[in-house]
Amino acid sequence: MQETKIKKYFEKKEKRFWSSFVNLFMEQLFFLSASVAVISLFLITAYVFYNGFKLFQFVPVTDFLFGFDWDPVTQKLFGVFPMIIASCYVTVGALVISAPLGIACAIFLAEIASPATQQVIRPAVQLLSGIPSVVFGLFGLAFIVPLIQDVGDVAGLSILAAIIILSIMILPTIISISEDAIKAVPKELKESSIALGTTKWQTILGVVLPASSSGIVTALILSVGRAFGEAMAVKMVIGNTQTMPDFSPQTGFGLLSLARTLTTNIVGDIEYAEPGPHLSALFATGAILFLFIIIINATSYVCLRRNSVKSNS
């Protein structure tokens, strides 16, 4: 009798020991998992920049950043300036098309559309964000490029095609984040505006949009990051030529000319890049791209910060 009691006591004690051990062990495991994010970010930054900086043993930084010619195999020229310009051009172009369209759609979803309409549009936006970028690229290559070819009597592969495809791709980002911002506008604000006898549109323009402006700006900045970093879809429709885009009016101020962006430079050249200056130059291209993305992210971070400070006060 006594023996079984003692045995039970020790069994219980052992069980408790194990469960508290597992408890402590899991806590450490959770912490380690969370640290993986930090370690990954550090490794990614380190590897991309370290491998990129190797290039500057062969080429001066200014020749790389402001050089106009990219001929890595025969002449060993590593100038990415045209690509930086093309990347910016394509991104701004996409934003010009999709910012008004996306914000309008977000307002429509948040303020006007009936629940039934919302149930059509919202899944559509969700689906749009889920479609792989290569599918957009295929659509661009098979439909938009021939269309530009026929209408403009040009090669078809062009900055314009890239802008159109990118503007479709960044719409979901703009719509979903702007919609959240618009929905977060306090009801009292809108109601007091309506009570003054304004119409719905006047309320939207005068109250809702100003109140949600910082959220909308964040949406736009995030979509800029997406457009700037998109590689595959752009690669498929932009032609990937090394030369500076032709900004003369004959080519629609560059819209109809072929180009190469920072991202497409990496995708296009990686297949035949030999280890050495060429591969390092691709990493350096990635590093420049990364720098741009860091600046864009930091801007959106500051915007969000300012936003949350404002709503707290």
Partner: peptide, 25 residues
């Protein structure tokens, strides 16, 4: 704060950079 910062930034990195990292590492 550092962990949250890292997650925010990982989410913003374009996939081509992940590709370069995968290639290098």
């Amino acid at each position: 704060t550092l962990i949250r910062f890292a997650i925010e930034n990982l989410a913003g990195i374009p996939s081509i950079i992940y590709g370069l990292f995968g290639l290098a590492f």
